[in-house]
């Protein structure tokens, strides 16, 4: 399971600061929602269900975009990869 580092948070404006690396990011609303659901330890299935209900999007597209987003979070070291291995 993917887990976002505990000290990284997304603000109301979509601003993300990673205190470990010192980098700042901005995310769009869909990304912010996913970000917060990941923080709540929701699974992909749960996240997918919520988003499919809310947005005009099909499951394949959503899954592809979700994976792409996760890979970007990993690249930016926002996801705790060690944690991922443990689970």
């Amino acid at each position: 399971m993917t887990k976002i580092k505990s000290n990284v948070a997304v603000s109301e404006s979509g601003f993300v600061f990673n205190p470990i690396t010192g980098e700042s990011y901005s995310v769009n609303p869909v990304a912010a929602e996913i970000f917060n659901m990941l923080k709540e330890n929701k699974s992909f299935d749960e996240i997918e269900k919520e988003l499919l209900e809310k947005y005009q999007v099909d499951a394949e597209t959503l899954e592809k975009d979700f994976n792409d987003f996760i890979s970007m979070l990993k690249q930016y070291q926002i996801i705790d990869e060690n944690n991922e291995k443990e689970v």
Partner: peptide
């Protein structure tokens, strides 16, 4: 009515 979907993006804030 469902909202228009936009793929999730995260963009590094360039400090140029």
């Amino acid at each position: 009515q469902k909202q228009r979907y936009e793929r999730p993006v995260i963009k590094k804030l360039e400090t140029n």
